[in-house]
Amino acid sequence: MDKDILIEYFPLYKDALFLTLKIGWQGIILAFVIGLIGSAIIHFKTPVLKRIVGIYIELFRNTPLLVQLFFIYFALPKVGIQITAQTCGVLGLGLLGGAYMIETFRSGLEAVPVIQTESALSLGMSDFQTLWHVILPQAISISVPGILANVIFLLKETSVFSTISLMDLMFTAKDLIGMYAKTIESLFLLVVFYLVMLLPISIIGAIVERRVRYGQFGD
C-alpha cells in the first residue's frame, strides 16, 4: 500500500463522507417524521389514510432503494417533476426509511399496555395529549434499538447514491479505481471511512440497547 496515495486521496474521501452524512442525516430526519406521522395514523386507525399508509409501506418495503432512486431521479422528470440528485437522495432515503420507521414505531406503540392509555384518558387527557405525553415517550424508548438499527441500515443504503451521480464514498472509490487503478488504496480508504461513520453508531446502539430495552427510567 502506498502511503502517499492514501494521503493524496484522503481529502476526496473526507468530502465524500460529509456529503454522505449530509444526505443521510436529512434522509433519516425525513424518515423519522414520516415514521411518527404514519404510525400515529395507524395507531388511531384513521379511515382512508390508514389504507394509504399501508400501501406506502408495502410498496417501499418490497422494492430496492436503487430502483426507487432510479424512478425518482430518471422517471419523474418525464412527467415534469424535476429534482436535484441531492434532493432525490434525501427523498429516496426518507421514503424508504419512513416505511421502516413506521413499523418500528408501530410495534413500540403496541408494546405500551392499553391500560396506560386508559389511565391517561381517565385523567381527562385528549387522545392527542395521551399519545404525546404518555404513550409516545414510552413507545420511542422501547423503539430506540429498532430506530438505531434503522439508522445504520439507512446509512449503509446511502452506498447506492453513486448511481445517481452523487459523489459519495462509493462514487469516489469507483472513480479512483477506474481512473488510476489504485485499487488497494481506494478500497482501504473506503472501508476505513465506512467504519468511521458506522462503528460509533453501532457501539452506541449496543450500549443504549442494554439500557433502554425494557423502557427503564430512573437508573
Partner: peptide
C-alpha cells in the same frame, strides 16, 4: 456495518 456494495467491491 459494511454496506454490501463495499463488500462487493
Amino acid at each position: 456495518i459494511m454496506p454490501q456494495m463495499v463488500l462487493l467491491f
